[in-house]
């Protein structure tokens, strides 16, 4: 059954072929800057993805719990408040503790260059900042979703 149909807009071909990319967007810290995450939500939807945004102020453990319940392909974390090193880390730490390896984590927001390698090391990729074209972000998410799907049934 795998890889039978060609990849449709936003749809992942390898597994769960009938399910478009499913993505959870979250701002896990105390951060009310939601203009960017609304833009991303709409852009992802328009790129054919299924988008979950649980509103402001979810706790890191809530984010992971939602991701598991929804079996998303990607978690997109956004913070503009400068707390990414602490708060993004909380999310990936909880994932590690629960043994979750097949959900990709991407990040973005107000992230100084020097923090990017640190986030990458935690497994959080992208880490795009102000002015990044949506097309770049969507491509990145698609790539990471593909990787996650491969792991889901490994």
């Amino acid at each position: 059954m795998l890889g039978e149909r060609s990849s449709v807009n936003g749809k992942n071909q390898s597994l769960f072929k009938d399910r478009p990319i499913k993505i959870l967007l979250a701002k896990p810290g105390i951060d009310g800057h939601d203009r960017g995450i609304f833009v991303l939500s709409k852009a992802f939807r328009d790129a054919g993805m299924e988008v979950i945004y649980p509103g402001l102020l979810p706790k890191p453990e809530d984010v992971v719990e939602i991701a598991v319940n929804e079996d998303v392909d990607v978690i997109a974390l956004s913070l503009l408040n400068g707390a990414h090193l602490t708060v993004f880390k909380k999310v990936v730490d909880i994932m590690k503790k629960r043994g979750i390896k097949d959900i990709a984590v991407v990040g973005g927001g107000t992230i100084p260059d020097e923090d990017k390698p640190k986030l990458e090391k935690m497994g959080i990729t992208g880490n795009y900042g102000p002015g990044t074209p949506l097309s770049v972000i969507i491509e990145h998410v698609k790539k990471r979703a593909e990787e996650a799907r491969k792991l889901k049934m490994a």
Binding site: N9, K11, D46, M49, E50, P54, D62, E70, D71
Partner: peptide
């Protein structure tokens, strides 16, 4: 969305607090 095939799965936002508090499984 009939145009892109994408979707907002928005039902969760209204129940999230209760789900988190009570450890309830929910799928959109």
């Amino acid at each position: 969305s009939p145009f892109s095939g994408g979707a907002f799965l928005g039902n969760r936002i209204r129940m999230q607090e209760s789900l988190a508090r009570n450890g309830i499984f929910m799928r959109s």
